[in-house]
């Protein structure tokens, strides 16, 4: 890995140190045009500093996904969502709108709920990525939020559910006593087509009331045959 450029790290929004940041780009200026087509991250010396250059071809990157370090080969234009789904077969996050409108692709990056369809995979390096698959309380044990989603029947077709559960998890962690307005603001970036909002609202309300839902007997039915 290239040496981190501390000066670059101080610029908000450019903390990643991966890819070619705007600042680095400005530093190398006209040199950029002379950068040859490379097949992996190339390190060039600019003003005595090392700068990493990606692309346009696939290059190896490392992502920390659900506590596991994963190395994959992606083009710099690949989104985190596509890298997760297509390279790592982490298929919980879904692509629905593909432009940061619906929330079905929501993952946690360093604990914050973000749209993975609008995040580049190379920019997610060095960060903790947690997807719906990583939110389980154990190998087969649902988290309290997941349990509440089952109990309040807050999923129908289930395609938006991954994103909703992920967003709800971050929301309830940050808002232990959520108000209706906070719910609408924080979960308003997720859409559902089957109309499960009634159940989702109950999940949040039950949490607000401090009545974390116990698993209903029938809700815990183990389903065989696989889905």
């Amino acid at each position: 890995m290239a040496k981190r450029d501390d000066e670059i790290k101080q610029i908000p929004g450019e903390e990643s140190g991966n890819g070619l940041s705007r600042r680095s780009f400005l530093k190398i200026g006209g040199l950029a045009a002379a950068v040859p087509v490379v097949t992996g991250p190339k390190i060039i010396q600019v003003g005595g500093e090392q700068v990493e250059v990606h692309g346009p071809h696939a290059a190896p990157i490392t992502l920390m996904v659900n506590g596991k370090r994963q190395t994959l080969n992606v083009e710099p234009r690949v989104t985190l969502l596509d890298a997760l789904r297509e390279d790592l077969d982490v298929t919980g996050p879904k692509r629905v709108c593909d432009r940061g409108e619906c929330g079905a692709c929501t993952v946690l990056i360093d604990g914050k709920a973000v749209y993975s369809c609008s995040t580049l995979a190379i920019d997610a390096q060095g960060k903790e990525i947690v997807t719906i698959e990583g939110l389980m309380a154990g190998a087969t044990q649902l988290s309290p939020v997941q349990e509440a989603y089952v109990q309040h029947d807050a999923s129908q077709c289930g395609f938006c559910t991954s994103g909703f559960v992920t967003a709800t998890t971050a929301f309830l962690r940050d808002h232990p006593n959520p108000t209706h307005e906070e719910m609408v603001r924080n979960l308003g970036g997720n859409f559902c087509r089957c109309g499960t909002y009634g159940g989702i609202r109950e999940v949040v309300q039950a949490h607000a009331g401090g009545k974390r839902a116990a698993t209903e007997a029938a809700g815990a039915v183990a389903v065989k045959g696989g889905f």
Binding site: T91, Q146, Y149, V150, S155, V165, F227
Partner: peptide, 20 residues
């Protein structure tokens, strides 16, 4: 409670889109 609920809330339910 729906029997496939636990699969859907944990991202384990597989759709056509997830078949890789």
């Amino acid at each position: 409670s729906r029997v496939d609920g636990p699969f859907k809330v944990s991202g384990r339910a597989k759709y056509t889109y997830d078949y890789n």
